[in-house]
Design a protein around this nucleic acid. Sequence first.
DNA 1: ACATCATACGTACAAGCGTACACATCAAAT
DNA 2: ATTTGATGTGTACGCTTGTACGTATGATGT
Lengths: 185, 185
Amino acid sequence: MSGSTPRRPRRHDPGRRDRLIDAALTVIRERGVAGTTHREIARTADVPLGSMTYHFASLDEVLAEAFTRHAALVARVFDERLSAARDRDAAVEAVISLVSDDLLGSQHDLVLSVELYVAAARNPALRAVTQAWMARSRQALERHFDATTARELDALIEGLVLHSALSTDPMTPGQIRHAIYRYLS
Amino acid sequence: MSGSTPRRPRRHDPGRRDRLIDAALTVIRERGVAGTTHREIARTADVPLGSMTYHFASLDEVLAEAFTRHAALVARVFDERLSAARDRDAAVEAVISLVSDDLLGSQHDLVLSVELYVAAARNPALRAVTQAWMARSRQALERHFDATTARELDALIEGLVLHSALSTDPMTPGQIRHAIYRYLS
DNA sequence: ACATCATACGTACAAGCGTACACATCAAAT
DNA sequence: ATTTGATGTGTACGCTTGTACGTATGATGT
């Protein structure tokens, strides 16, 4: 008999704030920023609504933290891939793999990035997140390319990924490789 | 004395639907898709709220029509610039001017495009609009470049514009030119 | 002059939202 | 054992939203 209602035995769990940020990312991925609400995040993380206002001052704060985490994750992948390359040829291959495997591999995360761009266009706090992220990926590229090339290459990558992700007919790894090689002459 | 309340003498005006779509575009530019509501559009166009539900079945329909119009406007600029070019060199200059002057010139319209991308990621109806638009700009490029080059160049343009628009330190026309020339070897 | 009916208007409503806040709970300090 | 204060919970409020719908209006065909 006893409590058939699934109890919520979760008093005092440290790291709940972290889980909420992860839940927020999940919700943004699935429903977009527009569909991201306190209630939806709480439901996803299986915590009561009140928990949101306890841990965050506002919904904007949640969004900012979620995007910061997303940016950090993507930036880390950039760093790892590029720091493993030991010469320029390897760096070029790393970039191609980055685009083909990491960025285009997970459609979800790409949309997340574009959502961040849009949100940043309206919200100055998020703008800082976007810029820090851009700066970091450019910096990773500068390990192997001069500053101008890094910037242009970064833009090309952005365009290829965006174009690809929104098209019904995404670019194949071979086409990605072709475009990058052509740019790098 | 008489009626200090500004009257609304606007019975029977044909083309109101069109004006509403324009007003919607204005609102999207200024407040983003998230801040676009029936009431805000009505206020901008100076028509009563009821007029919205009379002319459009839903808010999504308004958004779709607004984005379609935006896409058509941008595509037209592409066509005009590129059809005026008579040889490949002129086409390259046209592309550079397109990016530097038309796209980067109006910050607002750029954000509008990115908003469309995001909206398209969630809404299949808008996805069709985005794709038709992409197809058309690629087709304009194909007047002067082979299909592969057109696609890659289109992506590069997208990346340059996006990157530039979101950066505190946008690219100068000179930098745009440099990037495009480098890609086109 | 009159009837008709597409067009336009104002208002109301249910749903969902962010946020506030009083109360419950429990780990740690005394 | 008792106190205390941080942490967690449930509920309620005020607001905005999309949309529906009954009524008003006036151009048009007769």
